[in-house]
Design a protein around this nucleic acid. Structure first.
Length: 508
DNA sequence: GTTGCCGGGTT
DNA sequence: AACCCGGCAAC
């Protein structure tokens, strides 16, 4: 979903790039361009950054005050010791407020890096809270495009207008990371809310979440063919703007079908909700299960407590720290998995029925470090309607085949960086080639809410891998879309059937 | 003849 | 990648 955001930002960042100033400055401006935007969105679900928000709001208020052309800190009382930024010798420097004379509008600042005591006009001082704000004393952002994004400002106002303009600039790595984290938080949280899930409400939700909805719809649409997840992050390198975030039931195509299984939304909510709460600090499960994140990189197996940590580990240790490699940045999502570790050593079978108790993550862990719990909220296939849920296994087969690089038997399929469907399968040490192990699959999340007839999919012993080339797939016994819906209702067929491909809805 | 779907073409 | 369809094989 973060990449969803980056899609949105990506388009707009062209604008930002055009209007931005020297690169170093542009980088510094990111914070203002990006974070406040997110901030405003985040403010609905989080208040821990309120101080920053407050700082910005204060500044905004001043812009409309008596001196609109210079957003300044006139009305702010700077306190001694307060951290501020100033531009000294063309460089942005951090300093501490020594004294603020509001009458003379001067601020004495101790420059930390230079060790100098300096005196500044208040307007030349930026609050550390707004640390990444563009420098007001440098000419910048005079592009008409920028001004047009807001009100048609005259020349003298442009500078102030651009300060808080909601036009993202080219991102620094830190900003990207921040964006992704925050966007992830926002989207995961909002994705649980009825607002996002309800198609009519999409318009009113924030842009990022709407983008998420769109993308989810995409993934939902392709889920019929069982390849939805292949449009996910690992292919994002070629086009990061086509991610495959979690799927909300927003597709009109499925909306009618979804009526037949109204539990779908509930299931989704149950599923993703813990992630919302768990994201910053995974909530402990009732049965004192710790959620850890295990590196899946071959011969690594490092286990960390936080997603951020494991991502950083993967990025730095395995993927390298390519500064501008978006693909790599996203790849890190594929190399870790969420692991439940019970604190009391009570080894539990991977197929123990406990998976019903926790909708999110699955079982296992313990006995072997390789025992991994996988999760993914690929609700796109399962939740919207019961029929589609049958197509899920084939999706996973594709995943398995497409990601042989996953050295371990478990695979984590990120649909979004932070929402996963739980799958666990056992790779047989058999004669079967590694790409087609005998797999048993258990879906943990919310399938118990599916109609009873669907329960069989809880544990599916895989049919033998499709026979090697040459032999045609044996015609299955299951009724296919054509039979079920009839030729006259071809529009209700699954996509594959419409394309005269192997039916993905009524699998054999 | 009907149906399922593979393989390949088109967009 | 999404979509379409000729053609084959199973029914």
């Amino acid at each position: 979903m973060a990449s969803v955001l980056s899609r949105r930002l990506g388009k707009r960042s062209l604008l930002g790039a055009r209007v931005s100033t020297p690169s170093s400055l542009a980088d510094r401006m990111l914070g203002t361009a990006q974070i406040p935007t997110l901030q405003a969105e985040l403010s609905r679900v989080s208040s821990h950054l309120a101080s920053y928000e407050g700082g910005r709001c204060t500044e905004q208020a001043e812009e409309s005050s008596t001196n609109p052309s210079f957003p300044n800190l006139n009305r702010l009382q700077l306190h001694p010791g307060q951290r501020v930024y100033v531009t000294y010798n063309g460089q942005e420097c951090t300093g501490l407020v020594e004294q603020h004379n509001q009458l003379s509008d001067e601020v004495k600042v101790l420059l930390l890096e230079q060790g100098l005591h300096t005196c500044w006009k208040t307007e030349d001082v930026r609050l550390a809270q707004m640390q990444r704000s563009p420098h007001p004393t440098l000419p910048m952002d005079h592009s008409p495009a920028t001004a047009m994004d807001h009100s048609p400002a005259n020349g003298s106002v442009q500078r102030s207008v651009s300060r808080n303009i909601d036009v993202p600039k080219r991102k620094s790595d830190a900003a990207v990371e921040m964006d992704e984290m925050m966007a992830a938080m926002v989207l995961t949280s909002l994705s649980c809310s009825p607002v996002v899930q309800s198609p009519p409400s999409r318009e009113s939700s924030m842009p990022a979440s709407q983008a998420a909805c769109d993308s989810w719809k995409e993934s939902g649409d392709v889920s019929d063919s069982g390849s939805s997840t292949t449009s996910g992050h690992w292919s994002g390198g070629s086009d990061i703007s086509t991610p495959s975030p979690p799927h909300t039931e927003a597709s009109p195509k499925y909306s009618s079908e979804a009526l037949s299984s109204p539990q779908a939304d509930d299931g989704f909510e149950t599923d993703s909700d813990p992630f919302l709460l768990d994201e910053p600090a995974p909530r402990k499960r009732k049965n004192s299960v710790k959620v850890m994140y295990k590196c899946l990189w071959p011969n690594c197996g490092k286990v960390l407590r936080s997603i951020v940590g494991i991502k950083r580990h993967i990025k730095t240790q395995h993927l390298g720290d390519g500064a501008d490699s978006d693909q790599r940045r996203r790849e890190e999502d594929f190399y870790y998995t969420e692991v439940q570790v019970k604190e009391e050593a009570a080894p539990e079978s991977a197929t123990s029925p406990t998976f019903g108790s926790s909708p999110i993550v699955i079982q296992q862990a313990l006995a072997k470090p390789e025992a991994l719990a996988l999760d993914q909220a690929t609700l796109e296939s399962h939740l919207p309607n019961s029929a589609l849920s049958q197509s899920a296994p084939s999706s996973f087969w594709h995943i398995q085949a497409d990601h042989a690089y996953q050295a371990l038997p478990s695979i984590q399929i990120p649909v979004s960086p932070h929402i996963f469907t739980s799958i666990s399968w056992a790779a047989a040490t058999s004669t079967i080639p590694s790409l087609s192990p005998v797999r048993s699959r258990s879906l943990s999340f919310s399938e118990h809410q599916q109609p009873t007839s669907m329960l069989k999919s809880h544990l599916i012993v895989a049919s033998p891998p499709r026979a090697p080339s040459g032999t045609r797939k044996v015609r299955g016994e299951a009724k296919k879309c054509r039979k079920v819906y009839g030729i006259e209702h071809r529009d209700q067929w699954c996509t594959a059937c419409r394309w005269k491909k192997a039916c993905q809805r009524f699998l054999d």
